[in-house]
Design a protein around this nucleic acid. Structure first.
Lengths: 149, 149
DNA sequence: TAAGTGAGTTTAGTTTATGGACTGACAAAA
DNA sequence: TTTTGTCAGTCCATAAACTAAACTCACTTA
């Protein structure tokens, strides 16, 4: 299967990854969440090649994850900012960062910390269920594919 | 920057993505969470080319996300199963699936559903703070890089 | 003996990514 | 007014990654 066909697959993870599952896209989203807005900002932060950056930004805009906001004319220059759809990736990023902090070994401990300002602690995120409010554990999940009737 | 250098960057998201941020790896993890264990199983489920599958499985084993469990000798054949570190990706996958379900448009609604069996509802996951138990909202986060003293 | 299975490996061709130089429209400094 | 700088690209040649299909090897089952 080609990567581009992934959005056709009936699985929410496949569809998500068809938009943000390639090598640099989630790092661009991370930078956006931290306030980076401009082409040169992403390029310096990531060290990515300019061709790829152009391509990824265009894809994210086309997918509705980022939007372009002109900040000058002559020549037209854009800020790239997250849409609601883009900001909705925050939860994914928090869980991913948590995994990277605890599970990836062999490197000195990261100095990056995220604080939950409303309670004052360093954030330790977990996934909870909107219906019962309990932490979601693997043993309590059952995933099914409903067959069309 | 080369992709391989990403694990050197002092950022938990970079480190996480240096292990699971390429085009097929998270789909392999998804299949593992759903019970797929063998080479042919992944290959058929994903339609991935066999060369890449070999490479990705070897990387995941080397990174300690999967482990090999022999299920026969002559010839030796392995099941690939998630380690604790691999199972710890469940939260990332749940948030990613939720985003894929709600944010990726242009396709018919997915028929895949995950139930939270302990409360009986279709799972709607959110990220909560382990200290205060409240839902984590973007406006309540502050991320800093501590400077070495 | 013949066919099948599971997990790869090999090969050849295609696609993507990389780093560096280059462009174009301006702004600010000398 | 010439020079330097900035920002957001584009172009190009090389390098790396990916794909599909065929092939191998050690068995097992009919």
């Amino acid at each position: 299967m080609r990567w581009q066909e992934l959005d056709q697959v009936d699985c929410p993870i496949s569809r998500a990854l068809s938009l943000v599952g390639d090598r640099w896209t989630l790092l661009i989203v991370r930078d956006c969440l931290l306030g980076v807005k401009r082409f040169e900002g992403f390029q310096m932060s990531l060290g990515i090649s300019r061709t790829i950056l152009r391509d990824r930004l265009a894809h994210l805009v086309a997918a509705g994850v980022l939007e372009q906001r002109p900040y000058q004319d002559r020549p037209v220059r854009f800020d790239y900012v997250l849409t609601g759809k883009g900001r909705a990736l925050q939860g994914v990023m928090l869980m991913l960062a948590d995994w990277g902090r605890t599970a990836v070994s062999g490197q000195p401990e990261t100095q990056v910390r995220t604080f939950h300002t409303s309670c004052g602690h360093v954030l330790q995120p977990y996934v909870a269920c909107a219906d019962c409010g309990e932490e979601v554990l693997g043993k309590d999940l059952r995933t099914i594919r409903q067959v069309a009737s």
